[in-house]
Design a protein around this nucleic acid. Structure first.
Lengths: 245, 245
DNA sequence: ACGTCAAGAAATGTGCACATCCTGTCGGAG
DNA sequence: CTCCGACAGGATGTGCACATTTCTTGACGT
């Protein structure tokens, strides 16, 4: 027997966590949707406690909101919260691009160029899904290049929360960053060592995003869990375990 | 009967959470100490599940680290992690003081002045405990004055994590901010609208703190849970419940 | 004497069942 | 016809007991 998913199987927890996270990322769960523990447990084929744990974690990370004795819901970020998040991102990311402009390793420059090239390629192929991912990763990449893990983690959290509404509101319609060429310009400024220009571009870039979001209305409809998680398996690749439900 | 702590008693959860948090803040728990669930449950007089929940929350917030099937421990922050945290704080807080310098309400100025005055008073009274609290709150206050909740929450998390080692290493010996007059100078620069000077002072202030921490060695000793939580009751004020253990 | 291994004990992780609370619905009174 | 109150159904929260893993203590072999 290869593996038995009996006890401290962290993969199972991560699978449930990832499944919900992916469903949100794919826009299957509209803001205000209620995530019922029994339904999720049934659909994902795991015990309710596992779902509970994942839900608690998601709540604590800010992706979901919980009301005592009521349930767990997909949050409807207010305009103020969204503005605040982008405000913090502006502070951090402006400092990041400044720092990178003032000095970076050759490896960092290489990774940055490679990423921009990949974004360009995705744009040329009109691969919206890939471009969506890459657009988000660009901002994380900048944090990574600073060599500060805390910074990377923090920014990743902010980014997910801020891009969540993009994927929820219009997953297939628009990219999560206004113009991909923005990223190219920012990267160019960094590589040229023009700190002020890079910071200015980044601030403008983020300002454009928040404007894009603010004008987007949100609908409130009841969501069917069964349908939302169709095709989103708990395990990622091979369901080698003989669990079939 | 006034209240029965049976069901959705959020206060009980918060009490356990706060008790552990306070024990750490008071330096009762050295880095590397193991927090055993049965022992905590016995000492605090609550069920093990409640302790588990609080521990999970603390772990997720970064105050504790958990190892699967091993237990929960007080983390020993490495020099790199500490440096990273202070680096992020530098980015954020420099931006904060710049923003406040460029414009703030009269109410903000009033609160800032009041806080500095209170710090001065605590210094004059040689009230280390109060000064310790106030020193930390100063940085949170600056974030609050920006009117950005996300920013405040984020900075509060960073601050707790970075000041935690101060209280653990030497709770009664030194303040958590190098010189209280630093805060006064920073406040003055903000009130005068000198953004560059305020940012420079803040960066210097934080750099001084990280230097102070880097030179402090940590001891690894086994900790007795019973003794660590002596005098730290789960409930804050009145133990009205007849629970005595 | 030292290193290795095995068995017991304790702690952690998980599933289950029950208590509690919320919500939607039905019946009756105004 | 509308509004209020009670009831049933369902979902959430919690305590309990068991399975699994890890650490410790002791003995055995080299």
């Amino acid at each position: 027997m290869p593996r038995r998913p009996k006890k401290g199987d962290v993969a199972a927890d991560e699978a449930v966590y990832g499944a919900i996270r992916r469903a949100m990322h794919m826009g299957r769960l509209a803001p205000g949707a209620k995530l019922q523990e029994p339904a999720l447990a049934r659909v994902l084929g795991v015990s309710r406690e596992r779902v509970r744990k994942a839900l608690h974690r998601l709540v604590h990370e800010g992706w979901l909101t919980a009301i005592a004795n009521r349930g767990t819901f997909v949050p409807s970020l207010t305009v103020e919260e969204m503005r605040d998040i982008y405000d913090v991102r502006s502070m951090l990311e402006a400092a990041i691009v400044r720092r990178l402009s003032e000095g970076h390793t050759s490896g960092a420059a290489k990774r940055l160029k490679a990423h921009v090239a990949e974004e360009r390629a995705a744009t040329r192929r009109d691969d919206r899904g890939r471009l969506f991912e890459l657009s988000g990763e660009f901002h994380v990449l900048l944090a990574e290049l600073c060599g500060n893990d805390e910074l990377t983690q923090l920014l990743r959290g902010l980014l997910i929360r801020s891009t969540m509404h993009f994927s929820i509101a219009a997953p297939q319609q628009l990219t999560n960053c206004a113009g991909p060429h923005d990223h190219g310009d920012i990267a160019e400024a960094i590589l040229d060592g023009k700190a002020d220009r890079a910071a200015k571009l980044m601030l403008g870039h983020l300002a454009g995003l928040v404007t894009l979001q603010a004008t987007r209305p949100l609908r409130h409809e009841p969501v069917d869990i069964e349908q939302a998680f169709r095709g989103i398996d708990g395990q990622r690749a091979r369901p080698a375990t003989s669990r079939r439900a």
